[in-house]
């Protein structure tokens, strides 16, 4: 089980992500999303940077989460503006809640995704279910 002191902790953000035309094209192509140069990135694109922050959390040896036993239970985004090519995005993850039910850790997280100016682009809330 994960230590209950995890709730409320904010983790140092992993290195920021440069949003390249190539990355957006690849994401759009994989999801079949129509995309033309100059258009906003697909709405779920910020998961790329949020996921890096989630992996950093799960990979932290002090946290004690076995990555192969984690299920992505829920994901919600609130956007201040669409992501565009040229953005440099940073995800700062906070563990909001930790519930332990039936041997599973249910970890509620919020990643604040900010641009190079530090302005909020998107808030990504994820629920991760960690089973023993």
């Amino acid at each position: 089980m994960v230590d209950s002191s995890l709730a409320g902790r904010t983790f140092p953000p992993p290195p920021s992500l440069q949003v390249t035309a190539e990355a957006v094209r690849a994401f759009a192509a994989a999801t079949g999303t129509p995309y033309a140069e100059g258009e906003p990135a697909p709405a779920t694109f910020p998961i790329v940077v949020a996921f890096v922050a989630m992996q950093a959390l799960m990979g932290d040896p002090e946290v004690g989460i076995d990555l192969s036993h984690v299920i992505h239970g829920e994901q919600r985004f609130a956007y201040e503006r669409p992501v565009v090519v040229g953005d440099e995005l940073t995800a700062t993850l906070t563990v909001d809640t930790l519930r332990q039910i039936g041997g599973a850790d249910i970890i509620g997280t919020t990643s604040a995704i900010t641009d190079a100016d530090g302005a909020l682009v998107c808030t990504a809330k994820a629920t991760l279910v960690h089973t023993a």
Partner: peptide, 22 residues
């Protein structure tokens, strides 16, 4: 789901909230 929403909205970049449980 976001593709469908973009289609209904008439253009990409109009989504201000999106989410679900898996």
């Amino acid at each position: 789901a976001a593709r469908a929403v973009d289609g209904w909205a008439g253009a990409p970049g109009r989504v201000v909230e999106l989410g679900a449980k898996f």
